[in-house]
């Protein structure tokens, strides 16, 4: 394997100043390769979300570098930064963040709309993504008419509609019952296996973490252990 698709070197992130200063990350180094599925595991407040935000270029580290495809991302700004995020990443959050009054299709094609893709092409690709998640018949329904599991599937459709190379999932099953959660997990790992999309899952669910190729344990802003799945 050549370059990692996404890498963090000695990432530090602190909030506040002076006596209120809080170091959320204290020097995290992490390399993620294309096609991998990586779980970031740790207790509440350990810095998982902070790390994910830095990796997803939603925030800037205090010190340290984030490299995307081998190049430093510190120089990415404004339009180019937005474009990179739009084209490279898909997001799945614990909460769905669907616009309730809009149709499922409209919600799903939002990343394409932001990318500036024409409305006809948006429709075609939106339907394709929905079909892949077996939500084709719900395209015209209002988003708030969906069940929890359907909502999370719509969110996944939205995350992959723009053909991202990396999907970030922050507690993707946190809001779902275990049966529905398992289905959503299957979909995510299926995408990872079949389309080679890199998965970065933030979770404190050990079972979910166990299904990933690799687990990165974080405690108090530091990586404590990294373990690869024992090859069966």
């Amino acid at each position: 394997m050549s370059h990692p698709i996404l890498a963090a070197y000695d990432l530090k992130k602190s909030y506040g100043r002076g006596p209120n200063r809080f170091d959320a990350l204290k020097g995290v180094t992490l390399e993620i390769f294309a096609g991998e599925s990586v779980a970031i595991v740790g207790k509440s407040g350990s810095g998982k979300s902070t790390l994910m935000h830095l990796l997803a270029l939603l925030d800037k580290p205090s010190t340290g570098t984030v490299e995307l495809g081998g190049s430093d991302t510190a120089t990415l700004k404004g339009k180019r930064l937005n474009e990179t995020r739009n084209k490279t990443f898909g997001f799945v959050f614990q909460q769905f963040f669907l616009t309730p009054g809009a149709s499922v299709l409209e919600n799903v094609v939002l990343p394409l709309k932001i990318a500036g893709i024409g409305s006809r092409s948006r429709k075609v690709r939106g339907h394709a993504a929905l079909d892949r998640l077996e939500l084709g018949d719900k395209a015209k329904s209002k988003a708030n008419a969906l069940s929890g599991g359907q909502k999370q599937r719509a969110v996944i459709a939205r995350a992959l509609v723009n053909d991202p190379r990396i999907i970030f999932a922050d507690e993707p099953t946190g809001n779902l019952d275990s049966a529905t959660g398992a289905i959503v997990e299957d979909i995510l790992f299926g995408l990872n296996r079949e389309q080679g999309i890199t998965l970065i899952i933030v979770t404190h669910d050990e079972d979910l973490a166990a299904r990933c190729d690799r687990r990165v344990y974080i405690r108090d802003g530091l990586v404590v252990t990294e373990e690869a799945r024992v090859a069966a």
């Binding site: 937005n82 474009e83 990179t84 739009n86 963040f97 939002l110 990343p111 932001i114």
Partner: peptide, 16 residues
């Protein structure tokens, strides 16, 4: 708020 945050995360510029 959420929707705006999501759109920004997905790469929508502040100007837009």
């Amino acid at each position: 708020t959420r929707e705006i945050g999501l759109m920004k995360a997905m790469g929508m510029g502040a100007g837009r």
